Amino acid sequence: VGDQVLEIVPSNEEQIKNLLQLEAQEHLQLDFWKSPTTPGETAHVRVPFVNVQAVKVFLESQGIAYSIMIED
């Protein structure tokens, strides 16, 4: 199991704000291929294997929908 690319769908401005804060966490080494800008629009982010669980827990705790787009 390696890195994953998640497709994330924020449903409101609050969730977009939370994702932008997540993007700013440099220690997570997230690679946003497509940043969140509009509710209902997908964002794509590559998550290093060591941080996959932490990111998924965060998304679930914020009620942000996501799916695994690419499993490496």
Rank of each mutant, 00 (worst) to 15 (best):
N12W: 02
V45D: 00
F32D: 01
V57L: 14
E71M: 09
V55C: 02
L30Q: 01
L28M: 09
E71V: 08
S67H: 06
T38L: 10
I8D: 01
L28T: 03
L30C: 05
L19K: 00
Q15S: 03
V55M: 07
A65Y: 11
F32Q: 02
N51V: 08
P10S: 02
L22K: 03
Q25Y: 09
L19W: 01
S11H: 10
I64C: 01
H44I: 15
G40L: 05
E13H: 12
S11R: 11
R46T: 05
D3V: 12
A43D: 01
I70V: 12
N51Y: 15
L22S: 02
L28N: 03
I16D: 00
S61E: 12
H44K: 11
N12T: 14
V9S: 07
I64N: 00
Q62Y: 14
D3F: 15
E13D: 10
V1N: 14
A43M: 12
V9K: 09
Y66S: 01
T38C: 08
A24G: 09
W33C: 14
S61I: 08
W33K: 08
P10L: 07
F58L: 06
E26L: 13
Q62F: 14
V57D: 14
I8E: 00
F32W: 15
V9P: 00
L28P: 04
D31M: 14
E23T: 12
D3N: 10
L59N: 00
H44E: 08
V57T: 13
G2D: 08
Y66H: 03
V47L: 03
L20N: 06
F49T: 06
F58K: 02
Q62L: 11
M69Y: 11
E60Y: 05
L19G: 00
I70Q: 10
Q15C: 02
E26S: 13
H44G: 04
T42A: 12
M69F: 10
N12G: 03
N12V: 01
S67T: 13
Q4P: 08
P10H: 01
E26D: 10
D31I: 15
G2M: 10
P10Y: 03
I68W: 05
K17V: 08
T38D: 06
D31W: 14
Q21L: 13
V50I: 12
S61W: 06
K56Q: 06
G63D: 05
Q29T: 06
E60W: 04
Y66L: 01
P39A: 07
D31F: 15
T37F: 06
D3L: 08
Q29Y: 08
K34N: 07
K34Q: 07
